[in-house]
Design a protein around this nucleic acid. Structure first.
Lengths: 117, 117
DNA sequence: AAAATACGTTAGTCGCCACTAACGCATTAA
DNA sequence: TTAATGCGTTAGTGGCGACTAACGTATTTT
């Protein structure tokens, strides 16, 4: 990977993995325990726990301990940073490109047609 | 990965890898050859070629052959689908959550503070 | 109290993904 | 034409990431 030791964690990469993406959406409803969350997935509690650990390492979620449960919830600040990273990727050029494609249902730039594959 | 054989390719996952993300942004400027593109990266031409192949498999780019060059460019329709996948993830709840965090610089829901780790 | 149950994390495995190395092919140079 | 150069892709490898299995700990039950 390109996530080197001392580089800023790539929130987009972390957040994009399908299970983690689903976790974030579930946590948008409010804080939940590992077991509650893992009920929504085909994989084990352990797998979910590790996804949550990773999400917490990059600051997208935080945890609160209560009895023998661990309640996870979104970290607003981290989610803002995630949004910013996405906006930084989706620049004006890409917006224009998508807008064009939406209007024309076609390639944006020069309409060459001798494509291969 | 979770990209199984007969499932719809996960555009977000494919597009999020840092090198591929950069490739898409470079291609937003217009079509380019593999060698041109790989000049912007520390990795080999081969690596870039494979990233481009993957991007074309999921429909985010297309290729045009000219002489011994291969010109890659963005596929507008695919980029629209990418945008849609992102919007589908970033639902209203997350938007509200981020808005709250932006205003308060804090957690959106109940302000519990006995966090751990 | 001990035993049983439930919660979450750590230990260890396997497969895949990104990468370099080796290659085929096209074009140019001699 | 043959050799040399440049383009892009395939072959093969290493490491990391997602997963299950085993574990430690906390709580309940008897």
């Amino acid at each position: 990977m390109a996530t080197n030791v001392f580089s800023v964690p790539d929130l987009l990469e972390v957040a994009t993995e399908p299970n983690r993406r689903a976790l974030l959406r579930l946590l948008a409803e409010g804080e939940k325990t590992v077991t509650e969350l893992s009920g929504h997935f085909p994989v084990s509690r352990s797998a979910i726990s590790q996804h949550l650990l990773l999400l917490s390492e990059v600051g997208l979620v935080t945890a609160r301990k209560d009895g023998r449960n661990r309640y996870y919830r979104l970290d607003g600040a981290g989610m803002v940073r995630l949004r910013e990273q996405f906006e930084a990727f989706w620049t004006t050029e890409l917006d224009l490109l998508v807008a064009d494609a939406g209007r024309l249902g076609q390639q944006p730039s020069q309409g060459n047609s001798d494509d291969i594959q």
